[in-house]
Design a protein around this nucleic acid. Structure first.
Length: 255
DNA sequence: ATGGCTGAACTATTCAGA
């Protein structure tokens, strides 16, 4: 069983990339973020053709998340029931006995801004809700664009990023709070090469210079972490023509 | 410190992302 997450940065623009990637990487479950599509425009037929059932919740211009699956999707939940939010950032579903939570966590802009306050409130409410979900579902995976680089080794230049959004102490503490509940970072269960990132700015040739951040993550409960045999970031997509600024993260789980 | 890319929106310039 392979599960994955990818911020596609507009599903309209990236549909061909998504289909190409799924053909080469026929994962069982893929969580996508930033679809930027209202539900009436979601490409249900194209993804069905590719062998995927879908659940989605979107809005115009911003946000929007979806779960693609080769197996039946059950008990779909849109948004965090503990957090009133017009922005479509969370979708949860049960697939193959696992609770899959797809999340597009807020950007936060900068410390002190309204958006930062929103991000921190959103993360606090997420923790409360995930605690409840974990109690009900021992096999839970929280996949998505966290917009948080948890450690210095997840940032190309930690000094440059000190106190910048994605790497501020409160954000990192919020992510640690999720780990403290027993969730484990699938990527760090294994020895990894150095300087592995999942996002690179479009500007200043950041990808070619590998000036990136690791902000897309797959967190697993103990039961799933014990069954996880591999996790990697597929940076190849970032080399494609007109790419998403994020790369997919893939985890392999024993049945 | 700034601006640099990209996508989406009442197609031209602004907002938002990270």
């Amino acid at each position: 069983m392979k599960i994955a997450t990818w911020n596609v940065n507009s599903l309209k623009v990236r549909l061909a990339h998504l289909l190409n990637w799924l053909e080469a990487n026929p994962v069982d479950v893929l969580c996508i973020q930033e679809t930027k599509l209202t539900d009436d425009k979601f490409p249900v037929a194209e993804l069905g053709q590719a062998g995927y059932q879908v659940a989605f919740t979107g809005q115009k211009t911003y946000n929007g998340v979806a779960i693609l699956s080769r197996h039946p999707i059950e008990d779909v939940q849109k948004n965090n029931p503990r957090f009133e939010d017009e922005q479509q950032r969370i979708l949860a579903a049960t697939i193959g006995g696992m609770r899959i939570v797809c999340a597009y966590m807020p950007n936060g802009q900068e410390i002190g801004s309204d958006k930062f306050a929103y991000k921190m409130a959103w993360l606090a409410a997420l923790k409360e809700w995930i605690a409840q979900e974990m109690a009900a579902h021992p096999r839970l995976a929280l996949l998505g664009d966290y917009n948080i680089a948890p450690e210095a080794r997840d940032v190309h230049d930690p000094a440059e990023w000190e106190n910048h959004i994605h790497f501020t102490p409160p954000e990192r503490e919020a992510m640690q709070g999720l780990m403290d509940m027993g969730l484990q970072d699938a990527f760090r269960l294994f020895e990894q090469p150095e300087k592995q990132y999942s996002w690179w700015d479009y500007r200043q040739m950041a990808f070619r210079r590998n000036r990136g951040l690791r902000i897309d993550h797959i967190l697993l409960t103990k039961e799933l972490a014990e069954r996880c045999s591999a996790c990697h970031i597929d940076r190849e997509t970032r080399k494609w023509e007109q790419p998403s600024d994020h790369a997919p993260v893939v985890a392999t789980l024993a049945d």
